[in-house]
Amino acid sequence: MSVRARIDHLVTSGTFALDGGTWDVDNNVWIVGDDEEAVVIDAAHDAEAILAALGGRTLRAIVCTHAHNDHIDAAPALAEATGAPILLHPADLPLWKLTHPDRLPDGELADGEAVLIADVVLKVLHTPGHAPGAVCLYAPALGTVFTGDTLFAGGPGATGRSFSHFPTIIDSIRERLLTLPGETVVLTGHGGGTTVGAEASGLEGWVARGH
């Protein structure tokens, strides 16, 4: 049975800053919904560009996969423009406050929670490691998981900076993501996509290299 909901994709550019360093980055912004309503996954860098991509649809929520600044810097402006709530796992509040000390998220994401949009469900999977409150969003009806910076084509997200932990991200990927159907499409926070099956074969290699 076909579904109405579709996935739209926008790339925005800006900077990532943490631990005193700053890097130029391109971020994937994912919009999931139908012709009437949508959610935005990671409001990165450019609220005006995201608004344009929404095309007048009602924005139901701004879902943050984690609170590194490059994934949330446009969230307050987008929320102000649309009235949509910003949702974040509470374990990432310390990171959030580094970027937005005077504006808290509007709601909390919890492991196992269902975010409903159009005719699909986005299931929240808490996947700490890249950040304490990192989450992935699994849409079974779309055969897709949105992994933020937890899993990329070729390996796990970075764990060399504050609030991150390599053994934890490996556990998250092994237990929460590689248990999904192998054909599940992985849409990431930066760069190109992959599939769960393509990444499953590389897991032990990542562990051996201490990625």
Rank of each mutant, 00 (worst) to 15 (best):
2 S>E: 15
2 S>Y: 05
4 R>W: 11
7 I>E: 11
7 I>F: 12
13 S>A: 15
14 G>M: 09
16 F>A: 14
16 F>P: 06
22 T>Q: 15
25 V>G: 13
32 V>K: 01
35 D>E: 15
37 E>Q: 11
37 E>N: 03
38 A>C: 09
39 V>C: 03
39 V>H: 03
42 D>S: 13
46 D>L: 04
47 A>M: 00
51 L>S: 01
51 L>Q: 04
53 A>R: 09
54 L>T: 00
54 L>S: 00
58 T>L: 12
58 T>Y: 13
59 L>V: 05
63 V>L: 10
63 V>C: 00
64 C>K: 01
67 A>L: 09
68 H>W: 05
73 D>F: 04
77 A>L: 07
80 E>H: 07
81 A>E: 09
81 A>Q: 06
82 T>G: 06
87 L>H: 03
96 W>H: 03
99 T>I: 13
102 D>P: 00
105 P>N: 11
107 G>H: 03
108 E>P: 14
109 L>V: 05
109 L>W: 03
110 A>I: 10
111 D>W: 04
111 D>I: 12
111 D>G: 10
112 G>W: 12
112 G>V: 04
115 V>G: 02
121 V>L: 13
121 V>K: 12
124 V>M: 10
124 V>R: 01
129 G>P: 01
131 A>L: 05
132 P>A: 15
134 A>Q: 03
135 V>H: 05
135 V>K: 04
136 C>D: 00
138 Y>I: 05
140 P>H: 01
142 L>V: 02
146 F>P: 08
147 T>R: 10
147 T>L: 13
148 G>N: 08
150 T>L: 07
151 L>S: 07
152 F>C: 05
152 F>S: 06
153 A>M: 04
155 G>R: 12
158 A>I: 04
166 F>W: 14
167 P>A: 09
171 D>R: 12
172 S>R: 04
175 E>T: 14
185 V>G: 08
188 T>F: 08
188 T>G: 01
188 T>P: 00
188 T>Y: 06
192 G>E: 14
194 T>S: 14
196 V>S: 02
197 G>M: 11
207 V>T: 10
208 A>G: 11
209 R>S: 14
209 R>Y: 09
210 G>S: 13
